[in-house]
Amino acid sequence: MTFPPSLPALDVEHMQMHAAVGGLRLNVLYIRSGTFLQSMPAHAHSGKSYELHYVPAGRGQLIADGVRYPIGPHTLYMTGPDIVHEQIPDPGDPMREYCICFEALPAGEHADPDSSAIAELFLRTAFWHGTDTQQLSDLFERLSREADLQSIGYYMSIRSLVEQIVIAAVRNYACNRLSAHAAPQKTLDDKRLVLIEHSFLSASDTLTLPGLAQTLGLGIRQTERTLKQHYGLSFTQKKRQARLSAACSLLVTTTLPIGRIARRVGFATLESFCTFFKKATGISAGEYRERRQEER
């Protein structure tokens, strides 16, 4: 698609981009925006190509396969393979349009059920016209900024935004119907890793190896092996690390006396805490607090 004479704010044509949405593989041919100052002649796309049109402002008419449709602010329309269409702007309020053209192919047999449902709905909707309900303006504005600024990671961000825009289009087709399929659940190993993180953060003062093993549903040796695998530390080393982190945080974020901090992180005496802290950091707890307060 070539826009009539205008000043396009977005033109992503030479960037090679492949995206994936559910059970769809997308080969993005171009992304553009512009203001229609004259009519776009009737045309159609190739047998695998879809063109997503979003009009954030302005007015006009769309003629698709001989049928006229109104175009106004927040109009979304999709023109798929072999859909002959032309756009006619309102001379007094010419429409602005974002446009993404891509080839769309099924991802294959290994897509999950929800992904397959997205692909099926998309591929069988060769034409759709309606008012956007998914805040596409925000997504396209973010895409424009990414393309303009080209900050680190902009290519990945643009690809992600294209995927979100296509999902938003499908949600418009489906009138926001709920997914019929649950999201994949964490593996048991991942759940245990979350429990380990939570245990050391919330109970580093009282946590014991048998207690952690019971929480994880593992034996003591298995628990030790799990800690070694994920952190490269024994239980004792990991507990010391957690207690030191908790102590440092309390020293910086509170005005608690050092003796109370020692008890809060599980030390029976101030002396044992001070010995532990200086050995771990090279300075006393009081010096640590002073230095960090100066930095802040």
Results as ranks from 00 to 15, higher is better:
3 F>V: 04
9 A>Q: 13
10 L>T: 01
11 D>M: 10
18 H>Q: 13
20 A>H: 14
20 A>Q: 15
22 G>F: 05
22 G>K: 02
23 G>A: 02
23 G>K: 02
26 L>Q: 00
30 Y>T: 09
30 Y>E: 10
39 S>M: 10
42 A>P: 08
46 S>G: 15
49 S>E: 15
49 S>D: 15
58 G>L: 04
66 G>W: 01
66 G>K: 04
71 I>N: 04
81 P>N: 00
81 P>C: 01
81 P>T: 01
84 V>Y: 07
86 E>C: 13
87 Q>K: 11
93 D>A: 13
99 C>S: 12
105 L>P: 10
108 G>F: 05
122 F>C: 03
122 F>L: 05
123 L>I: 05
126 A>H: 15
126 A>L: 14
128 W>N: 02
132 D>E: 04
135 Q>C: 14
137 S>Y: 12
144 S>G: 10
148 D>N: 14
149 L>K: 11
150 Q>I: 03
159 R>Y: 02
166 V>N: 06
170 V>S: 03
176 N>Q: 13
177 R>V: 13
180 A>V: 11
184 P>I: 01
190 D>T: 11
191 K>E: 13
192 R>I: 00
192 R>E: 00
193 L>H: 12
197 E>I: 11
198 H>E: 13
199 S>H: 00
199 S>L: 06
199 S>N: 06
207 L>S: 03
210 P>S: 02
217 G>D: 02
222 Q>K: 07
222 Q>F: 02
225 R>G: 07
229 Q>C: 10
232 G>Q: 05
238 K>A: 14
239 K>R: 13
241 Q>C: 06
242 A>R: 03
242 A>H: 04
250 L>Y: 09
255 T>G: 12
257 P>E: 02
258 I>S: 06
259 G>M: 09
269 T>K: 11
276 F>Q: 05
277 F>P: 00
278 K>W: 03
278 K>Q: 12
283 I>F: 05
284 S>Q: 02
291 R>N: 07
296 R>L: 15
